[in-house]
Simulated assay, not measured.
Amino acid sequence: MRYYTHATTAVAGAVFLSASPIPLFEAGVGAASLGGVLLGSLLPDIDETGSWLGRRTKPLAVFIKALFGHRGLTHSGIVLAPAIYGFLQVEQMFISGLLFGIAAHILADLLSYGGVPLFYPFNKKRTSIPVYKTGSLLEKIIFLGSSAYILLTYFPI
């Protein structure tokens, strides 16, 4: 998934959860939680030197990619499980948003044909629920749909 689709789907998810019957972003998606969601939605791709974040943190991205490869540790259950748990436990809005963004990124990549190694480092095989291919027309539709949802939520017609 492209960085802009990761960002918009994570924000759309946070907006949806803030309006749910049991709001997980109780104060709504304010500036602190929004900043956390945006950063978190890009953070797992720190393991790819060509990613939006990887290009901006090149030495760190090179190091992490050399150790774990792309979609290795940063896309695994070892990161996903604590991110979900922390999101549900932490009350600080930026950190909560950051953890939600990380979880949203990994779950979105789980839906790609490339999948994620949920059981890394014990098993490097990728798990996938193949819905879309990165850069495909369907990904563009997902991006447009999540963008429309955010805009219509905050600026209803």
Results as ranks from 00 to 15, higher is better:
25 F>R: 00
100 F>A: 01
82 P>N: 11
11 V>Y: 01
84 I>H: 06
52 W>A: 11
144 L>Y: 12
2 R>S: 15
3 Y>E: 11
9 T>I: 11
94 F>S: 02
35 G>T: 02
56 R>E: 08
147 S>G: 09
28 G>S: 10
11 V>Q: 00
19 A>L: 15
116 V>D: 02
60 L>F: 14
151 L>Q: 11
83 A>L: 07
63 F>I: 07
6 H>C: 07
32 A>H: 05
93 M>T: 07
156 P>Q: 11
132 Y>I: 12
145 G>C: 10
48 E>W: 12
82 P>Q: 10
35 G>L: 03
48 E>A: 14
94 F>H: 04
148 A>S: 14
18 S>P: 07
125 K>W: 09
24 L>R: 05
77 G>M: 09
127 T>Q: 15
12 A>L: 09
9 T>Q: 07
84 I>W: 07
45 D>E: 13
130 P>D: 14
68 F>P: 01
152 L>V: 08
100 F>D: 00
19 A>G: 13
142 I>W: 01
100 F>G: 00
77 G>Y: 09
103 A>L: 07
16 F>Q: 04
27 A>R: 11
114 G>M: 14
79 V>A: 06
78 I>S: 09
34 L>W: 00
124 K>F: 10
128 S>Q: 09
29 V>Q: 00
73 L>P: 02
30 G>Y: 01
41 S>W: 01
77 G>I: 07
28 G>H: 03
29 V>H: 00
133 K>L: 13
122 F>K: 08
14 A>F: 04
76 S>A: 12
3 Y>V: 05
53 L>G: 03
38 L>H: 04
45 D>H: 08
85 Y>T: 14
154 Y>Q: 09
2 R>I: 14
45 D>C: 10
133 K>V: 12
76 S>P: 08
108 A>T: 12
76 S>K: 03
88 L>N: 13
32 A>L: 15
16 F>S: 06
85 Y>V: 15
140 K>F: 13
22 I>Q: 13
148 A>M: 12
63 F>S: 13
13 G>I: 01
145 G>V: 07
130 P>M: 14
146 S>R: 01
62 V>K: 15
134 T>K: 13
122 F>W: 15
52 W>G: 01
59 P>M: 09
72 G>P: 02
127 T>I: 12
5 T>E: 03
135 G>F: 11
124 K>H: 14
95 I>M: 12
141 I>P: 06
88 L>D: 12
149 Y>H: 09
18 S>M: 08
130 P>R: 15
81 A>T: 13
16 F>C: 05
146 S>A: 14
104 A>H: 01
70 H>S: 06
138 L>M: 14
88 L>H: 14
98 L>F: 12
53 L>K: 03
128 S>L: 08
142 I>V: 15
86 G>D: 08
105 H>M: 09
116 V>F: 05
113 Y>V: 15
152 L>F: 14
31 A>H: 05
47 D>G: 05
22 I>S: 12
60 L>M: 14
21 P>S: 15
61 A>W: 02
61 A>G: 10
8 T>N: 06
18 S>N: 10
11 V>R: 00
32 A>P: 02
139 E>A: 09
